[in-house]
Amino acid sequence: MRSEKVARELAGPLYGQEPWPIRFYTHSFMAACFNTLACSFIYNHYQFGTQKKDWAGRISDGPSGPPPNDRGVLWNSGHIIMPKKGETFPGPVELAWTSLDGTPFQASVDLDDLFKERLVLHNVVRENVQEPWLKYLAVQPLSPKILVELDDRTVSVYMKAIIATVQERVPGEPATRLRIEPVLAWKHTY
């Protein structure tokens, strides 16, 4: 069991606060690109995508293929982003890519503005949320996963978080009390 001091640091301003609506302070970040000739995402000083710099600083590009049949694999890993100086987001996601028709694009996605209220996006009504689990969020808030996806000319931002529910989606299977569904937060075609 972690100390109260550690819990306060991880929960930040959410520590001890009313847990509904569900809010977040930390998050994980993932990026995926599909159907591009080259793509680069820069977030929190990390580069994601098919465009990379080698040890000498030379840029190598590569095409990205189509999306997988099971998009669930996109959520298997991510970078945990801890707040710095009280800020949940370290800055915008900077994108640079070449669409399938050879057109270069650049865009910036400001997650701080997009999630300014720090609400966890989900599709569960309050009455279906487990009360003990919800009360625990006052000490240990959720850390949702945020995925920025680029598909040719369309940028989409999704959020996914575990929500413990009262009712099972499949009767007799307790594991189906956990809802873990991606929710579209924003989408733009360039």
Rank of each mutant, 00 (worst) to 15 (best):
G57S: 04
I162V: 15
T176V: 08
Q140P: 14
V166M: 11
V148Y: 00
L121R: 08
E117F: 05
A175R: 11
C39N: 12
N44K: 07
K187T: 08
P132I: 06
V183N: 03
R118G: 12
P182S: 07
N76P: 13
F24E: 14
F89Y: 02
S28F: 09
G102I: 14
S60F: 07
M30S: 14
F105S: 07
M1I: 08
L184W: 01
G16L: 13
C33D: 13
P67D: 01
T176G: 12
Q130L: 11
Y158S: 03
V139Q: 14
Y46L: 04
P171A: 14
E173V: 10
R58T: 13
Y158G: 05
L134M: 09
L137F: 04
P171R: 05
I59L: 04
R71T: 09
I22K: 13
S99P: 04
V125K: 04
G72E: 07
R8T: 13
E4R: 15
L178W: 15
K53P: 06
Q130E: 14
V148Q: 00
T26V: 15
V120G: 08
P67A: 01
V157N: 00
W97H: 01
I163A: 03
P90K: 13
L142N: 10
Q106P: 01
G12M: 11
A31Y: 00
E87I: 07
G172Q: 07
P174N: 09
N44S: 08
L74T: 03
I146D: 09
T165G: 10
Q130S: 12
I59S: 09
V148M: 00
F105G: 03
L134T: 06
R169L: 13
P63G: 00
S28T: 15
V148P: 04
R153W: 02
F34P: 10
Q130R: 10
P83V: 12
T154R: 00
L121G: 10
L74G: 03
D101R: 13
R169C: 06
R153M: 02
H79S: 11
Q17L: 06
P132G: 10
F89G: 05
N35H: 01
P92M: 01
L100G: 12
L134I: 01
P68I: 06
R126Q: 12
